[in-house]
Amino acid sequence: MLNLLVIDGVLLFLVTITALAVIEMRNLFAVTMLTGVYSLLMAAVWTNMHAVDVAFTEAAVGAGISTILILGTLVHVGVKERRREKSLNLSALLIVTLTGGALIYGTLDMPAFGDPEAPVQTHRFQKLFDQNVGKVPVTDTHHVEAVAHGAEQHGGEQHGAHEDEFHGHVYNTVTSLLADYRSFDTMFETAVILSAGLSMIMLLRRRSDEEIEAATQRTERVDPDTIKTERMDPKTTQTVRVDSPPGSDSSGADKKLAAEIAEAVDSAEQIQHDAPEETDKGDQV
């Protein structure tokens, strides 16, 4: 127990130093690396607290993927942070100190770390510890056979299904909670991840030259004779696309563009105008 506390103390000390370094440093590349170190240290702390799933996520996401993604962002924004003038904001300091003090005061009521008398160790613990369901060897055969086999091997008491409040959930409590007990939650989390990816695509996708060419040709097909004057070279199209609002970056933008140009052409034909007017309209798009 004491050893654990020493390890925790050292780790948390390192975490604090890393966090302070992240705040103080101005070289963003070093900051990115230190964020990775921070995640790695936190993963060690979580492991020490037996929160293996959290540690796993912290290591994979915090130290792994997000470091790479931040590095990718650094390619755009450069590695130097602009120097800010340092000024002491008294009211902010006061609020932060008060909040921190209140949080620390709140922790005083919590049981000591690893206290065997703590409610988390005693409340329903024995009942959960004793439950048998879900602890039978899982076989590929049908569940009825599995139950029968289990009953033969371990005695009938092994399958007291009705005594189990978890209804036969699996070994790993965390996954069981995430994927079954809160499966709706997880489903919509997945949907959130998907929409995050979709918004990345909508915000950042650049269309290739072929796609732009295709869009231009679609425009030509509207009316080959009249449109010739305002045939767009890829550069112009690209500028237009970048300036347009982010939501419209999909192929829908192409159709809209084509439709608007067609409209311009129509109106031009109606008033029997010549090319310059159309070009103006095309630029406005």
């Binding site: 369901v133 039978v136 899982v138 049908h142 569940h143 399958h159 994927a179 079954d180 997880t186 991840i193």
Partner: peptide, 22 residues
């Protein structure tokens, strides 16, 4: 099914769904 077998199948499928998306 209360022996956990069916749940494991459901969970594996669901976890693969999450995994593929992520």
């Amino acid at each position: 099914h209360l022996d956990g077998g069916a749940e494991i199948w459901g969970m594996i499928l669901v976890e693969y769904g999450v995994g593929i998306t992520v």
